[in-house]
């Protein structure tokens, strides 16, 4: 294909890669939202509109051998870490060929043995699990890997957040905790969530590194998240990244988010990171409209293919399901139906 764009530098290549994951995530999320409205998805749909720059920056900064515990708005980071669109679609549609086999759904997906940890719904609970993987790797003499756990600002109010961040600090683990302060935890504004001026100040109390970033700006996210990860990788201990943005959607697709302050939407926080990144790439001639159109149509085709494939795949069958919650089948209860 013809392009007016010259061979990109490494930094540019990273930006372009991150942008593509943002775009793919946005289109994938849009598809899930459409399927939800059409009644094709059981349960909720949770999308990351507005958080793609931050999430993609995490994913592209991680190596495949690292550890990643994303949260509900991390479609971009998941794709960048190596999740396939098909895995995401299979989980939402309940295909037995997906990683969760219809036993868990939507954003609760992962492949633990590939360092991709499937979230439970209890916020803050994944941080100590990331700590555990890092702790075990250190015991096994594996060095140079980092672990990222993602949270919203609401999760900073949990006991699990405190316990696990303190634990990581005591053990000097290469943990990067990324807090997306998107101004609302479901409907609760930050004024009802915490009283400190800046969540990043909490890092002082734990004795760990702190970073803040404008999450509507992809370049800033790549630099800050990448920098925090480099520090953790270099043995400088846990790093807390607090990123500010506005959630450009409801908590889930069932939520019209009418509680969001209109003034916030008009503020710099309300800027759409995807649109801003696209303008930045075009203005700096890092890509062109033709290339963008190709990326978009490629992603759309892949998403459509994945949906039509997953819709033809076997769904879970209660009669053939192995109803065993433990792997040691000889220890199953024999008198419970």
């Amino acid at each position: 294909m013809l392009s007016t764009v010259s061979e990109p530098s490494l930094a540019t290549a990273t930006q372009l890669a991150a942008f593509r994951f943002m775009l793919r995530a946005r289109l994938l999320d849009d598809k899930f939202a459409a399927l939800y409205r059409a009644g094709k998805i059981h349960g909720g749909v949770f999308i990351g509109r507005g958080q793609e720059a931050l999430s993609a920056s995490i994913g592209v900064s991680l190596k495949k051998t690292d550890v990643f515990a994303p949260l509900i708005r991390d479609a971009a980071g998941r794709l960048a870490f190596g999740e396939t669109i098909l895995d995401a679609v299979r989980t939402y549609l309940g295909s037995t060929l997906g990683p969760m086999r219809g036993r868990d759904g939507n954003v609760h997906r992962g492949r633990p043995q590939q360092g991709y940890l499937p979230m439970i719904s209890h916020l803050g609970a994944m941080i100590s699990v990331v700590n555990g993987v890092l702790f075990a790797r250190r015991m096994k003499g594996i060095s140079g890997t980092v672990g990222v756990a993602c949270l919203g600002e609401g999760a900073t109010s949990t006991g699990a957040f405190h316990e696990s961040l303190n634990q990581a600090a005591v053990e000097k683990l290469p943990l990067v905790l990324v807090v997306a302060n998107n101004q609302y935890a479901y409907s609760t504004p930050t004024s009802r969530q915490f009283a400190c001026e800046n969540l990043a100040d909490r890092a002082i109390g734990y004795g760990i590194g702190a970073h803040t970033v404008d999450a509507t700006d992809l370049s800033a996210c790549l630099e800050t998240v990448g920098g925090a990860m480099a520090k953790a990788r270099n043995g400088e201990g846990p790093q807390l990244v607090v990123a500010t943005l506005l959630r450009l959607c409801g908590h889930g697709e069932h939520d019209d988010a009418n509680y969001i302050d209109p003034a916030l939407k008009k503020s710099p926080l309300g800027r759409d990171c995807l649109k801003f990144a696209e303008e930045f790439l075009l203005q700096n001639k890092m890509t062109d409209a033709a290339q963008l159109a190709v990326w978009r149509s490629e992603a759309l085709r892949e998403i459509e293919d994945a949906v039509s494939q997953a819709q033809r795949e076997p769904l879970p069958d209660p009669f053939t399901e192995n109803w065993s919650a433990i792997s040691s089948e000889h220890l199953n209860e024999t008198h419970i139906e």
Partner: peptide, 19 residues
């Protein structure tokens, strides 16, 4: 540390890693 939640969470992570 006195952190029962994080103690068990760490154990789960370590178990995933084969410990």
């Amino acid at each position: 540390p006195i952190s029962e939640d994080a103690m068990v969470g760490l154990a789960v992570g370590a178990a995933i890693e084969g410990m």
